[in-house]
């Protein structure tokens, strides 16, 4: 469960309010989509949730643990797929995943089993021992996803996870996200691909200019307002102000 309470992030350098009094609760067993136009504050919010950025005010709880008060304990619960690629390009995919396993204390037996499982699932078994610098964009993304999954996190946070993935891997990731939710874990992800969000998510939040615009229950949207697509809703709610 992720609880975001009155989260505000102001960049000290220019007083820019990137996230403005955001309150959200993502329950266990939910796949929560986080939408917004470019520069709306999605990545800033995710970086606050994962402890990369300090926030100005508010509170973020990861399964009840405050990320500010107990950062290490909170981060232990998170599997995070960033929007940027792995930095250690001189390592092989396997070396990098092993490093993440070390950080999260994954037992050797489980480590091997999970690495085998996910590398096969994402079609990386032949490439995992090669250096990351030789990987394509999509392959780097796969290693990033595998390393977020390998410690079986309670909370799975993904920033634009589908970028660069081939259709098979994209399908596998969606399956994993669904299985995670079914297992009672929390999945929170940002995306611009509205079709994926529409099909996959149980709830969707739309953010614009740092402010929460709406939170909609996808089941309700599908059942009660079948004539309104997520795309139309998104475009209506995030419509730029009238041209100059």
């Amino acid at each position: 469960m992720i609880q975001i309470e009155n989260l505000t992030k102001i960049y000290a350098a220019n007083n820019f309010k990137a996230v403005d009094d955001l309150t959200l609760t993502i329950d266990d067993g939910e796949i929560f989509g986080f939408l917004g136009p470019n520069g709306a504050g999605k990545s800033t919010t995710i970086k606050c949730l994962t402890g990369i950025l300090n926030y100005t005010s508010g509170r973020v709880l990861i399964n009840g643990v405050d990320i500010k008060d107990a950062p290490l304990a909170a981060k232990k619960k998170i599997g995070y797929v960033p929007d940027e690629h792995i930095i250690y390009e001189g390592l092989t995919g396997l070396q990098y995943i092993n490093f993440i396993c070390n950080v999260f204390d994954v037992a050797p037996a489980k480590r091997k089993e999970r690495i085998d499982k996910y590398t096969v699932l994402f079609g990386m078994q032949d490439k995992i021992s090669e250096t990351i610098s030789s990987y394509s964009h999509g392959m780097k993304q796969k290693v990033s996803i595998i390393s977020a999954l390998v410690h079986e996190p309670e909370v799975f946070i993904l920033d634009e996870p589908m970028t660069g993935l081939d259709p098979q891997s994209s399908f596998q990731l969606k399956t994993i996200m669904t299985e995670y939710a079914k297992a009672g874990k929390t999945v929170f992800f940002s995306s611009h691909i509205l079709e994926v969000v529409e099909k996959l998510c149980t709830k969707v939040a739309i953010i614009n200019k740092g402010k929460l615009v709406t939170v909609c229950d996808m089941t309700e949207l599908k059942e009660k307002q079948s004539d309104i697509s997520l795309e139309k809703l998104f475009l209506d709610l995030t419509k730029p102000s009238e041209a100059l």
Partner: peptide, 8 residues
């Protein structure tokens, strides 16, 4: 950024 996101 990567290291700050990990429980290190």
């Amino acid at each position: 950024a990567l290291l700050t996101s990990l429980p290190l």
